[in-house]
């Protein structure tokens, strides 16, 4: 639940989601669910020349299982909170 809770705090922030097919999509975090499926608004594909496949898409749903990375906005990462939440979760929370 740690990352589900964390991703919920990113609502409205801009992230880049990199998929396991190398497609990278930048957009505003709209919502996330327990599977870490992610919905992005105002999306644009990084390197649209190479990947024109989503040219007419502005909002999308990304299946959690196909995510490789999420590039996070620096201002939205409070490392102290993350450390504590991680320790608590490791303790069986």
């Amino acid at each position: 639940m740690l990352f589900y809770s964390y991703f919920k705090t990113l609502k409205g922030k801009e992230v880049t989601v990199e998929l396991k097919n190398d497609l990278a999509i930048t957009g505003t975090m709209h919502s996330v669910d327990q599977y870490l499926n992610i919905k992005l608004n105002n999306t644009r594909v990084v390197n649209e020349q190479k990947y024109p496949h989503m040219m007419s898409v502005r909002n999308c749903f990304i299946r959690g299982s196909v995510v490789r990375y999420v590039q996070l906005p620096p201002g939205s990462v409070d490392t102290e909170i993350l450390h504590d939440a991680t320790r608590r979760e490791a303790r069986g929370g």
Partner: peptide, 17 residues
Amino acid sequence: SGCVSVQDSFCQRKSRS
């Protein structure tokens, strides 16, 4: 309800840290 409590503790933790 389980995930709500996780969310809560996630947010409140800083003061206790």
